[in-house]
Nucleic acid binder design. Sequence first.
DNA 1: GCGACAG
DNA 2: ATCTTGTCGC
Length: 273
Amino acid sequence: MDVARPEFLPDPDRSHDEMEALQREIADVAVFSDDHGFDAATLGFEETPRDATGDPDAGSQQKTLRDADAPVVVGVDQAFVGDERSVSAAVAIQDGVVVERAAGSAPLEIPYIPGLLAFREGDAIVDALESLSVDADVVVLDGSGRIHFRQAGIATHVGVLFDVPAVGVAKNLLCGTPRESLDDPLSEGARVAVEADDGVDAPDGTVIGYAYQSRQYPNPQRRHVNPLITSPGHRVSAETTVEVVEATCAGYKLPAPTRLADEYADELKQSGG
DNA sequence: GCGACAG
DNA sequence: ATCTTGTCGC
């Protein structure tokens, strides 16, 4: 993949204020509506059969034929080697089959600062995506997109940088107000809109993403799973974002692209930086 | 000043 | 994110 807007590269040498200013520019050109060519219903991830305990049942048949016209979904995830270098893994999947994997890495130059994640992990991600040869129909990133103080989380930043449809999947809420409390367990498949509030650069009440319960245990009263926090990155609506996440989770808590990128990132981490 | 905060 | 074994629940 190629960077489309080099002026938006996440340069960690910029000042704190410059980083925030860049994020506002990115949010200005970001598209939070559907502007892509895929149909979330044709992503090709099969629902995982469950056994009696509700755990994924292994041993089901493997797919051998892949639809070459199906959309390509790319999952991206990072891991750290020591604490001065990050590795990024990108895994491309088409019709449920891994078609390419790419690695990237970069030095860690700034600490983790809520709201500025892209400037810490962005360089490694760019390195990985630039060495990916297939074209992605949509990229799935770890973290927020529009659910961000300046509507420019890491999924939005990367999406706009490459001008590729992108979605953000986070395990925790960064900002915004859920329409319903997320403190009590939600049932599987439930979705709760997250609205902009005073902490977000968007009109109050704007739906900037959804909490989505991808998986839940049979008896959430005793043991429960937390919902995922999904938000559009670029060229995808909040509603389509949830559809992409729902289709790719296929019975697991995390989307398959994320899980596979996670595993690959661990491999890269083990074999040095 | 206080509180809140993705990975 | 990362450091890590056992343990609870279905």
